[in-house]
Simulated scan of single mutants.
Amino acid sequence: MSPDEGERRMWGGEELDLDAYLARIGYSGARTADLATLRAVQRAHVSAIPFENLDVALGRRIALDVTSLRTKLVDRRRGGYCYEQNTLLAAALERIGFRVAGRGARNRTRGDVLTPVTHALLVVTVEDEQWLVDAGFGWQGPLEPVPLTAGSRVEQDGWGFGVEAEDEGVHVLRARRPEGWTDLYAFAPHTLYPVDFELMNHYSSSHPQSRFLGQVVAQRPGSEVRRALVRDGLTSVRVDGSREERRVGPHELVATLDGLFGIELDDEEAAGLLRVHSAEV
C-alpha cells in the first residue's frame, strides 16, 4: 500500500455500512467524490444527527471506533459530539472516495479565554481544493463545506460563514451575526489522525475542566432555527437574528430531547439524565 493509499484509508471507511449510514441521514443521491456530493452529505448529516454529550454526562466511555459509532449514531439513532460526529462523517466520506484529513481547533466563542485545542474538524480535498467540513460544532456550525481560502464567504440558507488567515498559517472560521462577524474557532494547518482525536476525546470526556462533564448539552444547527440546550437553558436563534430563551425543567427534559433534538433514549438513560439535570437546576 502506498502512503497516499494509507492516508485515504485511515478513517476506517471499509468498516462502515455505508447504506445504513446514508439511510440514517436520509441521503439517496450520488456516491461520487465531487463537491455536490460533499455538500449534500454534510447537510444531510447535520440535519439528521444531533450534537449531544449525553453519554459524557452519564459518565460513560466515548468510543470512536467505526463499529461503536455505527451502533450508537446510526442503529440507535443517537447523536454525539465533535469527535464522534466527524469521525463517522470521515469514514463515510473516505468510503465514498474523498481524501479526508483531521484538524484540531481552539474554540473562540468564549470571549478572550485561551482554550486548549479540543475541537475536531475535517479538511476534505476535492479536485485539489481544500474545504472545511465540520458536522460537530453544534448549533453554531456550518451546514455545508466552507472553502478553506482566506477571505472566502458563503451563504447557507441565510447563515453566513467565512474563513480568514492569521500568522503561522492559522485559519479562522467565522460566522456572521447581526452585530457583525465573529470568530468561531481557529486551527493550524497541521494534519491530525484518528489517534489524535482519541487523545482530545479523552480530555473532553474525563478532565475535570471539561465543559462537557456534569451537564446536559444538546444542539442542532437547523436551516431556519438553531437550538441549544445547555444545562436547563434552551436557546433558539432564527436566521433573522431573533432569539428566544427559556428554562427546561426536569419534567420536560426527555420530551425536549426527543421533540426538538430527535434524541431517542432508553429508560436507563432517561433516568440517569434526569438525575444529572435535577442536580443542575
Rank of each mutant, 00 (worst) to 15 (best):
residue 273 L to V: 03
residue 46 V to Q: 07
residue 214 G to M: 00
residue 218 A to N: 12
residue 113 V to W: 10
residue 253 L to W: 01
residue 143 L to A: 01
residue 246 R to Y: 07
residue 215 Q to L: 08
residue 239 V to I: 03
residue 75 D to A: 00
residue 191 T to I: 13
residue 57 A to W: 01
residue 275 R to G: 00
residue 178 P to R: 14
residue 89 L to H: 15
residue 64 L to I: 10
residue 94 E to L: 08
residue 145 P to S: 03
residue 274 L to C: 07
residue 8 R to D: 03
residue 193 Y to F: 03
residue 279 A to S: 13
residue 43 R to Y: 14
residue 10 M to A: 14
residue 203 Y to F: 15
residue 35 L to S: 14
residue 213 L to R: 11
residue 114 L to Y: 03
residue 247 R to D: 00
residue 136 G to N: 05
residue 76 R to M: 09
residue 141 G to P: 07
residue 50 P to Q: 09
residue 231 R to D: 08
residue 42 Q to M: 10
residue 36 A to Y: 08
residue 63 A to G: 06
residue 36 A to I: 09
residue 156 Q to V: 00
residue 86 N to G: 09
residue 152 S to Y: 11
residue 160 G to A: 06
residue 45 H to M: 07
residue 67 T to F: 13
residue 256 T to W: 05
residue 132 L to K: 08
residue 212 F to P: 15
residue 74 V to N: 08
residue 216 V to Y: 01
residue 106 R to W: 14
residue 19 D to R: 04
residue 33 A to N: 11
residue 249 G to E: 06
residue 253 L to T: 04
residue 76 R to D: 00
residue 221 P to E: 07
residue 257 L to W: 06
residue 44 A to C: 02
residue 192 L to T: 10
residue 217 V to Q: 02
residue 48 A to D: 10
residue 13 G to C: 02
residue 129 E to L: 15
residue 254 V to R: 13
residue 144 E to Y: 03
residue 249 G to T: 06
residue 218 A to H: 11
residue 86 N to K: 09
residue 58 L to M: 13
